[in-house]
Amino acid sequence: MTATAASVPARRPTNRLWSRILVYALLVFFSVLFLLPVYMVIVTSFKGTAEVNISTMWQFPQALSFDAWRTAYERLAPGLTNSFLLVVPATVISAVLGSLNGYVLSKWKFPGANIIFPLMLFGMFIPYQAILIPLVQFMSSVGLFNSLPGLILVHVVYGLPITTLIFRNYYAEVPDELLEAAAIDGAGFFGLYMKIVLPISLPGFVVVIIWQFTQIWNEFLFAVTVAQNTPMVTVALQNLSGSQIVQWNVQMAAAFLAAVPTLIVYVLLGRYFIRGLLAGSVKG
């Protein structure tokens, strides 16, 4: 590393300087592009209804108005509550199941596991439209249609492939020797899991929980078909934007509110978020 750092500037100093400037200029340029919508959301949301118009849309608000935020919060509050009630149990259950599955599929391979695992994984890629009609029917026949537990079940089931995948890849790194040593001491299936696997699973759980949290929080299709009368935050936001004589300031404030929980998670735990992202590409 040090050798490289020393050798590079020695090459062509002026050229090097210009290319550094170009790199930073490009990065700043793209950053501005990426943040443009954020600027717009924030600026618009703090404007009073009268101030939202074409000629001044890119300018700062003349006077800070919190009306839009108040209205947006009133309209979105039930959705935010529902989404939290959904996300917490669905995430925890699917993480626990994923951990057990990953443990079995990496350390207790049974005959046929190599065929069953890809078949399970296929479930995370399917377009959910392909299961939507029977799903509605099934949920109603077991009395779970349009209920929070029903939607939790749906998210747990369709979250299983990704949580299993992440844990399986994570546990694959755990050396078998570690488990064998404990097994000699007489630990069984659960003993190994509790003593060896679980204590080192924290990073895995963080990755899975973040991933599931953002996925379920952001999901729309199931929310709009399976749980219409307990509207989730995405459905509430779409309802807000699909109606009204376009009150853009309220919509922007609402969009921001709907994004806050996942953004907080992302900013605080971004490192793990990226790991979850990469795990989605199967091999990691």
Binding site: F30, S31, F34, L35, T214, W217, N218, E219, F220, T234, L237, Q238, A255, A258, A259, T262, L263, V265, Y266, V267, G270, F273, I274, L277
Partner: peptide
């Protein structure tokens, strides 16, 4: 900055 939109919902 480049990654934060990934944390958002398509609805947002």
């Amino acid at each position: 900055i480049f990654l934060f939109p990934m944390a958002l919902s398509f609805v947002v």
